[in-house]
Design a protein around this nucleic acid. Structure first.
Ligand SMILES: NC(=O)c1ccc[n+]([C@@H]2O[C@H](COP(=O)([O-])OP(=O)(O)OC[C@H]3O[C@@H](n4cnc5c(N)ncnc54)[C@H](O)[C@@H]3O)[C@@H](O)[C@H]2O)c1
Ligand SMILES: NC(=O)c1ccc[n+]([C@@H]2O[C@H](COP(=O)([O-])OP(=O)(O)OC[C@H]3O[C@@H](n4cnc5c(N)ncnc54)[C@H](O)[C@@H]3O)[C@@H](O)[C@H]2O)c1
Lengths: 209, 209
DNA sequence: TTCACATTGTTATTATAATAACAATAATAA
DNA sequence: TTATTATTGTTATTATAATAACAATGTGAA
């Protein structure tokens, strides 16, 4: 029940379980077995039960898990009650795609601002998200109490943007630029490196060629 | 020297090393120490040396590693000589951003086709990449010898698209849809789940709040 | 009632990755 | 020349994650 000690990979899977449990619920499915959850995610039932054990959730023998209860428990672990505010820095091709994708989806994670240094973009609204000048970034982050930032600026500006974000009090960063970033320990950093992902696919394709 | 046995994480780092080594080279830096590579990626020098040991590369004592040689060796491991062809299925917001991002960058991984089922998009060219009807997908994949596919269709269509791709002989898939896919063992699958990544950031932010 | 068994929950083992410890050596300084 | 040191290369240890083994138990069939 102590979320401080949950394995990283379990956190990832909880997020995925929840998404698909919500779909189950919407289809009128109220109970689910570990092997059913496993099948959806292409993992083993043991892995599922172990994850649920770690979060202290018990199912009913021969009846499985209560979908609603499980969704709620995962929410208690992953979400904060009031939700967290998110900003996107760099409203370019990827930034705009992400705004469209994320905004309105998660009730507990709201994109409340975009920042860009291109005058053409400043003042515009994308999928309901206002794009501000990056000069006002620190100010707005503090004012609005934004705690998470998504970095989608070109690689050459990613380092300085990250520094500004840290200075402004951001607590978590999701970095899409291929530039490795360095942040102090109190800031959580997650990097999505699509070039590496694609090259990895290529490597394994080559291997099995 | 046997690339069959390289750890997955080493493969990822090799891709990243190479990218930054190319930048070093372009800046006229011809030799580099393990602690310099480490600093760029915010890892330990030991990790770097271990990776290089695993690929059988030796540096020179007190002089470090030859940047050019290292880049070439990583290329020998990650790339195929003739390169591999890549297709993007789903030329929507994300698909188009990716086309713009990837095309023309990597000489050994070329996006040679896009596929969509929306008539408005079929026949159009995005950043030099022709968008074809998804009905012609199998045909063109076989014809062109495309071995890698990037899936950027809506979740509800991801499963059927993946099946078609496997049937057409695709050997590696990079899936951006949040739908977990199932592919036979001879097809390598890499999934990028941005919702999970963002929720993970939120979890750790909450934890340290 | 009793037994079989489907399913959960937990512990033990193994696999993978990261870190630490240390051995080797060539360049430099004394 | 010899000692020092910066740096590489390798082995040993520890940490993390996945898998396997198995114990527990309520349900329903016989
Ligand atoms: N496009 C993709 O599909 C894709 C995929 C993977 C990674 N990336 C990475 O994401 C980043 C953005 O890619 P993109 O294709 O959207 O590029 P883009 O050029 O379309 O967008 C970048 C945006 O950032 C803005 N910007 C630049 N410097 C800034 C600063 N200091 N502060 C605020 N805004 C600033 C620019 O004005 C522009 O709007 C890059 O680092 C790229 O490597 C992109
Ligand atoms: N937009 C993002 O930033 C983002 C981020 C993460 C994940 N994703 C995922 O990527 C996928 C695409 O997102 P998007 O925002 O680009 O959506 P989108 O609606 O803009 O694009 C989807 C495209 O796929 C095409 N399509 C639909 N069914 C198809 C089929 N069977 N064959 C071929 N083409 C088909 C549509 O015509 C459309 O052009 C979704 O699964 C989404 O969950 C998107």
């Amino acid at each position: 029940m102590n979320p401080k000690s949950l394995p990283d990979k379990t956190i990832e899977r909880l997020s995925q379980y929840r998404r698909n449990l919500l779909i189950c619920l919407s289809q009128g499915k109220h109970h689910i077995f570990s092997h059913e959850i496993a099948q959806i995610h292409h993992i083993t039932p043991v892995q599922v039960r172990r994850d649920l054990m770690l979060i202290g959730y018990s199912g009913t023998l021969r009846k499985g898990y209560d979908v609603r209860e499980l969704i709620d428990l995962i929410g208690k672990i992953l979400d904060t009650e009031q939700g967290l505010k998110v900003a996107i820095v760099g409203v370019g091709n990827l930034g705009r795609a992400l705004i469209g994708y994320f905004s309105g989806k998660r009730s507990k994670l709201n994109i409340v601002a975009g920042f860009d240094n291109n005058p053409d973009k400043i003042g515009k609204i994308y999928a309901g998200v206002h794009c501000f000048s990056s000069e006002k970034m620190s100010e707005i982050i503090v004012q609005e109490g934004i705690s998470i930032a998504i970095i989608t600026v070109p690689a050459e500006n990613a380092t300085s943007v990250a520094e500004q974000l840290v200075m402004a009090g951001i607590r978590g960063i999701l970095n899409f630029s291929p530039k490795p970033l360095n942040v102090p320990p109190h800031v959580y950093l997650e990097e999505i490196d699509m070039i590496t992902s694609l090259e990895k696919v290529a490597f394994y394709v080559k291997k099995h060629l």
